[in-house]
């Protein structure tokens, strides 16, 4: 979004699509286990940290 500048802020259109993807990405870090749950799994199951 930062790289796209103001063009990334438009809905749809030829240059657009970024705004939709950006909003969609807000769900990616929540659905199916939040990022925090995933980091917890990686730290215990892959890195072998206690807890």
């Amino acid at each position: 979004m930062r790289a796209g500048g103001s063009a990334a802020l438009e809905w749809g259109g030829d240059r657009g699509g970024r705004a939709e993807d950006w909003l969609r990405s807000k769900g990616n870090s929540i659905e199916g286990g939040t990022s925090e749950v995933m980091l917890g799994i990686i730290s215990r199951r892959i890195l072998g940290l206690p807890g």
Binding site: E36, L39, G40, I42, S43, R44, I46, L47, L49, G51
Partner: peptide
């Protein structure tokens, strides 16, 4: 075992 460090390591 502290989550603050676990998440940074992960």
């Amino acid at each position: 075992g502290f989550q603050a460090l676990q998440h940074r390591a992960a």
